[in-house]
Nucleic acid binder design. Sequence first.
DNA 1: ATATAAGCGAGACGGTACGTCAAGTCTTATC
DNA 2: GATAAGACTTGACGTACCGTCTCGCTTATAT
Lengths: 211, 211, 211, 211
Amino acid sequence: MAVQKSAQPAKSVPDSTRRSEKSRRAIYDAALALVVEVGYPKTTIEGIAARAGVGKQTIYRWWSSKADVLMEAFLDLGERPLGEVKPEPYAFPDTGDVAADVKDVLRATVDQLRDPRFEAPSRALAAEGVVNEQLGRELVAKLMQPSLDLYIGRLRAAQEAGQVRPDVDPRIALEFFVSPLAQRWLQHTGPISYEYTDTLVDYALQGLAPR
Amino acid sequence: MAVQKSAQPAKSVPDSTRRSEKSRRAIYDAALALVVEVGYPKTTIEGIAARAGVGKQTIYRWWSSKADVLMEAFLDLGERPLGEVKPEPYAFPDTGDVAADVKDVLRATVDQLRDPRFEAPSRALAAEGVVNEQLGRELVAKLMQPSLDLYIGRLRAAQEAGQVRPDVDPRIALEFFVSPLAQRWLQHTGPISYEYTDTLVDYALQGLAPR
Amino acid sequence: MAVQKSAQPAKSVPDSTRRSEKSRRAIYDAALALVVEVGYPKTTIEGIAARAGVGKQTIYRWWSSKADVLMEAFLDLGERPLGEVKPEPYAFPDTGDVAADVKDVLRATVDQLRDPRFEAPSRALAAEGVVNEQLGRELVAKLMQPSLDLYIGRLRAAQEAGQVRPDVDPRIALEFFVSPLAQRWLQHTGPISYEYTDTLVDYALQGLAPR
Amino acid sequence: MAVQKSAQPAKSVPDSTRRSEKSRRAIYDAALALVVEVGYPKTTIEGIAARAGVGKQTIYRWWSSKADVLMEAFLDLGERPLGEVKPEPYAFPDTGDVAADVKDVLRATVDQLRDPRFEAPSRALAAEGVVNEQLGRELVAKLMQPSLDLYIGRLRAAQEAGQVRPDVDPRIALEFFVSPLAQRWLQHTGPISYEYTDTLVDYALQGLAPR
DNA sequence: ATATAAGCGAGACGGTACGTCAAGTCTTATC
DNA sequence: GATAAGACTTGACGTACCGTCTCGCTTATAT
């Protein structure tokens, strides 16, 4: 069967090799700054373009929506070599004590959730993701899954060390650590503190029922 | 002391006794229908007014924003005598078996989360709440807290019955049941099923660590 | 046969009884001023709206194009009670001497063609009319025909007085007076002066061939 | 005297000896075709470039504006060896009968004005010329004057032959033949036909006043 | 014969204006 | 006095072109 010769005379994808790196950075910076300064709903494509000193078309050429720009800007922020903001540790500590290790990581997450540079854009993206499933899945895959995989790895190690029951599914177990914190943060259902996350770890590991 | 003569020549609060009940219902119906049909972002005040056969001003007179309209509409939906959609059971079952009771309620919640009449407006409201703290807190207070309180009540009963450790804080414990489900639903981090919620209950009650 | 009940749910024509007279005048003034100041091509709908202190939509609601706005503005200019600019005398002089009368009117036309308030908008409209037949015909009907009819009337009177051959078609004859001047003005094919228009009248009445 | 070493580091005029003839033709063809197909206002530099398979810069290098391109394309059309469209006869007939000769030429002009290949571009250029005096004068000089000079020549001959009064200025006399037709065509003030142009010649030569 | 510099195609860029949509305010007429 | 209707100003949307600017590629002398 012959390969489809692709007769689209259509919009012709832009040539990314000729893309202006300078403009891209300026757009990332403008988007993040505006979200922090005026909030996501009042952040407009026009505003980003103006602040970045860029034509609107340069944004529309490379991104499909405000949320798309912000997501890339936010991802880029995490990859910045400066180490300014690291969304998550790139390796999960393993001291042999699961409880301590998970508490450690959760405390770091609490810190991050309180960092204002992080909060505004990530709330905006999370909100978009709630309503827009496609973007939501992209966010999960690109921003959250890498961190969640580290939890899974650590829990597997704990299972091998006999600290976690072998019949427990680590992909569900991790939610006991992560989801309550996530919900408190997302829905303002409660305060966030080291004490709280520590408690979560203790409760989850020991269970709620008396032994 | 003289009665304040109310010298505000300003916006003068509208007289709610003269409010048109018919218009209010029409606005609720239009808002909910539009959110389901075209999605929250494409639901506009103008659209609601047009569909409800109502002047825009009638909306602006009584509500402060699109989210505000939708929240009231959604609350109203839950209070409808028809019982079409019940956000949550008004009483938590208590058969003596906490695990079974919680699993029951969670299965009902799973059903609700999948009801399309429920999903569109509640996602929209949840998304707004992520980004708008004030509205978020209102949502929690009006929509979620009543249900959460029922969990607390049931867990306290379980503590008294010796099925749950007495030193456990029920306000945190309930998050093990509710938050993972909430996060999967909000962030599309995973599938939702009876099996899943049942597993949550088992894991949470027994704990992750081996006995 | 029943009258069509007009089932157009369409754009719904705006209600002209509620139209803002103030905005209309401001738009006319802005349009005319801009055409004079920056020229027709650089006159934009946005510019007119901004200058008139009016929303763009108010322009788009009532007019279909820049040319349409300008045409109405220009027509309005002629109807202004101030008599600032009269496109043409409302009555053609009739002293009994056709030559003198026509020369008179043509001299007035020369004056008008040189009035800068008149020149910019009428050139712009004329140019549009060359390329856009529909608009061109509208211009002729609304702006030129009334004046041309006066020529016809005067020429008919001259025929009755025996000063013009009775077999001559006045609708063609008037072009000898008007068209050469029009072409010189439109196409910059030659200078415009009283002497020139006087000559036109003499040549046309006497003919080019010797007697 | 030393030759100016041309120390302008500036725009450096392009070297016309290296110009691509193929591109020029393609641009002419594209410009004319687009004006006919979509009309002058919707004909864009980008569109011409795309259709001609040419970079935009190649157009900007050699022409200063859309009107400039079109004018050259149109002039070129007239000079094409194919004789497809001849703007005007290169010699004015002289049979000894001025009336007949002028009628002949005018009939040819009428034919031309109706040729669609001619109409779209020449209307576009004429419209530009109305508003842009510089371009208008260029048009007159390059496109019209050669033809008008032929009229002048023929009228001079007629004066010598005693068919036209010697005191008549041929540069004005020719306008009686040409301007009414031009105005009808430019402004859509009336229909164009052989009968009409014949009548013009008769009226103009005999005069309007009875002998 | 080969360097080298111009014209060239392509198209990304910073901009301006387009014509549309909706927000929130204001006015009018109706009930 | 609340309402339905809808005109108003404002401002953002996403698109189309403008005129400028690189980028490789070809091509045609000038070494």
